[in-house]
């Protein structure tokens, strides 16, 4: 139970950081745009433009005439060699920002994109902070385990056996249901 604070702490923190890094990499990948065929680009754009007359539907989902017309325009503009940004701008100029299914990451709308990063980052820091604080307190907890009563230790032992029974960390053969029953009955 002797704690070697710094080294083990850094190994454990590193494990979580690695997981966080993977998540971040996936996040980055989700944001980046791939090389797409004109058709694929058109369908992607369909999903990024809202139908102006339908409640909460993109032109991809909607069967309304205006949505069909907008899809037509998207395909014409792609054929004319316009970029996704230019096409989006065209629709924003006509219908306002509300036509974009997700706001552009600029100006005031930057907030909508930054907040998730703040939430995730702040949350992660909080978790690390809580864990660190708890670990500092755990030396005291260790002492109290040693002071606990005999019966308590038997219950602890039972729980360890349960862990062992499903194979945690040690050879788990030979612990049968009857042993469990007796342990708990006495505990």
């Amino acid at each position: 139970m002797q704690i070697v604070p710094n080294r083990r702490f850094s190994i454990q923190a590193a494990t979580w950081l690695l997981l966080a890094a993977i998540a971040l990499a996936v996040f980055a990948a989700c944001v980046s745009e791939n090389d797409l065929t004109p058709d694929q680009r058109a369908y992607t754009l369909d999903r990024e433009l809202m139908c102006p007359v339908c409640d909460g539907q993109t032109i991809d989902q909607s069967h309304a005439q205006i949505a069909e017309d907008m899809k037509e325009i998207v395909r014409e503009k792609i054929a004319q060699g316009e970029s996704n940004g230019q096409i989006r701008d065209y629709f924003v100029a006509r219908y306002g920002e509300v036509v974009l299914a997700s706001p552009e990451a600029s100006g005031f709308n930057l907030l909508v994109w930054l907040m998730p990063v703040v939430i995730a980052g702040g949350g992660a820091l909080t978790v690390v902070w809580v864990l660190k604080n708890m670990r500092r307190g755990s030396a005291a907890a260790t002492a109290s385990i040693q002071n606990s009563t005999l019966a308590d230790r038997q219950l602890e032992k039972y729980l360890e056996k349960v862990d062992a029974d499903i194979g945690y960390g040690r050879d788990s053969a030979g612990i049968s249901q009857t042993t469990e029953g007796r342990e708990s009955g006495n505990g």
Binding site: A23, E48, L100, A101, S102
Partner: peptide, 21 residues
């Protein structure tokens, strides 16, 4: 005083990595 939409493309991007985690 400007209406914006926050729809699937936003949620997929921000929640996708969290859900995978």
């Amino acid at each position: 005083d400007v209406s914006v939409s926050v729809s699937a493309p936003y949620f997929n991007r921000v929640n996708g990595p969290l859900l995978l985690a």
